[in-house]
Computed example of a mutant assay.
Amino acid sequence: MEYTKEYTVKDEHIDVQQIMDGLYYPFYMEYCRHDYIREVLVFDFEDQAKKGVHMVLSGYKIQFLRSLKKGDQFKVTCTLYKDPAGQPKIYFKQSIILNGKVMTKAVFTGTCVPATGGRPYLPAEMIEKTVDAPVLEGADL
């Protein structure tokens, strides 16, 4: 299931070239991804942290295709994928889209870790929510 949110480029995110600074693309993707995690996966970061569960990123790959400009209204998508080897990882394929064109695309890798330290894992509730998610293919990484 593809999840989508809409945003507008903030003036303070524009660089001297009058395009959005590359630093901010992952931030907009994070806003969308966090909303997806809260709303669809029903994982509340604050509540889980109090229970000793931290959801963290373990990596990401991003590709910049086109630049956003001041005032652009764009969409950010988020789609969940499972790990092909059954590892305790989830993947979020995301795109930034303006006027039907992909501007930026990325794959973010996430997992959970105990607040006290220890090995990565996915809580049982999260595994249940991801059971029907497609498997991420190696070329998608």
Rank of each mutant, 00 (worst) to 15 (best):
M1D: 10
E2I: 09
Y3Q: 02
T4G: 06
K5D: 11
K5T: 11
E6Q: 14
Y7L: 02
T8A: 09
V9H: 02
V9T: 05
D11K: 12
D11N: 12
H13W: 06
H13Q: 06
Q17N: 14
Q18P: 04
Q18R: 15
I19F: 06
I19A: 03
I19V: 15
D21R: 14
G22E: 03
G22F: 01
G22P: 06
Y24P: 01
Y25L: 03
P26I: 00
Y28D: 00
Y28L: 00
E30I: 07
E30H: 13
Y31P: 01
H34T: 15
H34Y: 14
D35Y: 12
D35I: 02
Y36P: 00
Y36V: 02
I37P: 03
I37M: 09
R38D: 14
R38C: 08
E39M: 07
E39R: 11
F43T: 08
F43Q: 12
F45L: 10
E46S: 12
K50C: 07
K51L: 08
K51V: 05
K51I: 07
K51Y: 08
G52Y: 11
V53E: 11
H54P: 06
V56D: 03
V56A: 08
L57G: 15
G59R: 07
G59D: 05
Y60Q: 11
Y60G: 03
K61G: 11
I62N: 00
F64P: 01
L65A: 10
L65G: 09
R66C: 06
R66F: 03
L68H: 00
K69W: 04
G71L: 03
G71K: 07
F74K: 00
V76D: 00
T77L: 02
C78R: 00
T79M: 08
T79F: 05
L80E: 08
Y81D: 04
K82S: 13
D83C: 09
Q87W: 12
P88N: 08
P88Y: 10
K89H: 15
Y91I: 01
F92A: 07
F92N: 05
Q94G: 01
Q94P: 00
S95T: 09
I97D: 02
I97K: 01
N99T: 08
K101I: 03
K101R: 13
K101P: 03
V102Q: 05
T104D: 00
K105Y: 04
F108G: 11
G110S: 12
T111G: 06
T116I: 10
T116Q: 14
G117S: 08
G118C: 03
P120D: 07
Y121H: 10
P123H: 10
A124V: 15
A124N: 15
A124H: 15
A124L: 14
A124P: 10
E125L: 09
I127G: 12
I127N: 13
K129S: 11
P134L: 05
L136C: 04
G138M: 11
A139I: 08
A139M: 09
D140W: 08
D140G: 14
L141V: 11
L141P: 02
